[in-house]
Computed example of a mutant assay.
Amino acid sequence: METQDQLNYKRIASAIDYIKGNFKGQPSLDEIAEHVHLSPFHFQRLFTEWAGTSPKKFLQYISVAHAKRMLMENRSTLFETAYETGLSGTSRLHDLFVNIEGMTPAEYKHGGKNLSVNYSFAESPFGNLIVASTAKGICYMAFEDNEVQALENLILRFPNAFFVRKLDLIQQNALFIFQNDWTKIAEIKLHLKGTDFQLKVWEALMKIPMGQVSTYGTIAKQVEHPNASRAVGTAIGSNPVAFLIPCHRVIQSTGLFGGYMWGNTRKTAIIGWESARTSHLLP
């Protein structure tokens, strides 16, 4: 049985798909509402509750023109200056409180042997997800409606680990982010299995402020491999922690959003949702 939140997200996702597919025609509120089988009044209210802005404004946030503007803004040193001078306590820069701790070579080599992994399932504004943690931090987070498939995917990453279905404090602190509660961000650590290059790329992703986007080429330069855009794309595509490591904030240099491991519609939804919540902070 679907919860109301699950049903609402499906309606929002369907509306986003319709908006993207009919963007050039600038669909009206009535047209979008009809597509998701709601009255214009109820659709406007539902969409505003979920996205924090009107469908019309959201349409602007997911347009190529807006994405290009965000890319231009991200070329300035404003973000780096704010970070270096200790101004990273705002919600816009919250990701930098998330720290990465790579697994030891032995843990990496043996697929999590002797590693105890707690996991649980939760709801988010973008659908159901599975979140898993070790004693050191979050090791996996993924959007997945099917709990059986979600667990199988987790086990594939750590085939020799010991798994317990348990919601622990580490997971709870991470999940607060979906409630716009950044107070626990400083307590979040990630315990990741990856190569040195992957860890560098994932760390670079966490320096993209909420409500902003970057490109594969920019990330390649930041990890000091300016000609490795393709390798960067592969590392981004292997990101094991959805949302906390914000691979959704990397788009094509043309302004097109591009692919996403957990679905292009979800990526569009997240980018628009974050833009809506940080629009008052943008220059």
Score class of each variant (00 low, 15 high):
95 D>F: 12
98 V>R: 02
90 T>N: 07
95 D>N: 14
88 S>Y: 15
116 S>P: 00
110 H>S: 15
102 G>W: 02
110 H>Q: 07
94 H>E: 05
99 N>W: 03
124 S>Q: 02
94 H>G: 06
119 Y>K: 10
91 S>F: 13
86 G>W: 09
91 S>C: 06
111 G>M: 03
91 S>H: 12
91 S>L: 12
115 L>C: 09
113 K>R: 12
120 S>V: 01
118 N>P: 02
90 T>E: 13
98 V>W: 01
95 D>I: 02
104 T>I: 02
101 E>R: 10
113 K>C: 01
85 T>K: 15
105 P>E: 09
101 E>K: 05
120 S>R: 02
115 L>V: 15
95 D>W: 07
108 Y>G: 01
111 G>Y: 03
87 L>V: 00
93 L>G: 06
86 G>R: 08
122 A>M: 09
105 P>W: 05
115 L>W: 05
87 L>E: 12
94 H>C: 09
91 S>W: 10
92 R>E: 15
113 K>A: 05
117 V>P: 04
85 T>I: 14
94 H>F: 11
117 V>K: 05
93 L>T: 01
109 K>C: 01
122 A>T: 12
104 T>K: 04
99 N>M: 08
123 E>R: 02
102 G>C: 00
91 S>A: 12
100 I>D: 03
106 A>F: 11
91 S>I: 03
111 G>P: 01
87 L>H: 15
112 G>W: 06
88 S>R: 09
122 A>N: 13
109 K>D: 10
105 P>Y: 00
122 A>F: 15
113 K>N: 04
88 S>Q: 13
100 I>C: 04
93 L>F: 12
113 K>L: 14
89 G>M: 07
87 L>N: 13
103 M>S: 08
94 H>A: 13
120 S>L: 04
119 Y>A: 10
106 A>K: 12
104 T>Y: 00
110 H>N: 13
103 M>R: 04
91 S>Q: 08
103 M>N: 02
109 K>Q: 11
109 K>S: 11
98 V>N: 08
101 E>G: 04
108 Y>E: 14
100 I>Y: 00
111 G>H: 05
123 E>Q: 14
116 S>V: 14
106 A>M: 08
102 G>R: 06
86 G>E: 08
105 P>T: 03
106 A>C: 05
101 E>Y: 04
121 F>T: 04
107 E>I: 00
124 S>G: 07
104 T>L: 09
97 F>Y: 14
102 G>F: 00
90 T>C: 07
85 T>E: 15
